[in-house]
Design a protein around this nucleic acid. Structure first.
Lengths: 126, 126
DNA sequence: TAGGGTTGGTCACAATTTTATACTACTCAT
DNA sequence: ATGAGTAGTATAAAATTGTGACCAACCCTA
């Protein structure tokens, strides 16, 4: 048996999928979507984000914002005033993500009733 | 006309944000999106899903499938054969989620290069 | 001049979630 | 008899996330 006879597990497809997954894992984490929605209408300050996104901790907001900034989806503008002011804003690439994210939000809203009914039915039947 | 110019319907403001968040938290977790993509072309068996979704543990696949089933997004069909066979398939509601999920996947693929470049630039500069 | 509030964070530690590993029970092919 | 495949469960380890304290600079009030 030569090397050519060995069946490798789909190397081409995996090579393509991995970077896409890395990106999706950033977007589809617990908080990123909500940050996107919050930044939908323009720049927002750190503590305004914190108030708007119910339940997020200061730590997770900082971490998530830093990751989104690293990916070039949001920009961070620091005004050296007292008290300090930091604005977060969608970049051009970030803005292009608004459409699919909003489509997902719209879907969630449209199908809320169906899902809640399915849950009730499931919990009743078991 | 590019993807960014397409006008998706905007979700109405804040009325009942909490239930929508509950739904989004299910969809936008670490594995649900990949299960949706894997089920895109028809029913798939448990271990086939496991092989297709690289890195998922057996436990998390079971848990995530159960949650999606509870929400009425996928259906579970058990054939009492030996060896056992269980098919997972998108329901009608689940199928309606394909469009927004695929829009997100397409976005991720289109913006892969831009994001990777932003990451390199960011890591270099700091 | 002392105390309290605001800003955008960081840090250490606790709680939660996810992963890895082993195990079940059953059958078929070698 | 051995190993592979089926769809899971149980448990401990690892990773992620949340909690509360702390910081420094200033403003306002008393």
């Amino acid at each position: 048996m030569t090397l050519g006879d060995i069946e490798f597990p789909t190397p081409s497809e995996e090579a393509d999928c991995l970077p896409v997954r890395e990106i999706l894992d950033r977007i589809a984490d617990k908080w990123s979507l909500y940050i996107f929605v919050a930044l939908n209408d323009g720049p927002v300050r750190f503590n305004a984000l914190r108030r708007q996104i119910d339940g997020i901790s200061q730590r997770m907001l900082t971490i998530t914002l830093r990751q989104l900034e690293r990916d070039g989806l949001i920009s961070r503008t620091h005004f050296p005033t007292i008290p300090p002011r930091v604005d977060y804003e969608l970049t051009a690439v970030g803005k292009s993500l608004r459409a699919p994210v909003m489509a997902l939000m719209t879907w969630a809203e449209s199908n809320r009733d169906a899902i809640e009914q399915a849950r009730r039915l499931h919990d009743q039947t078991r």
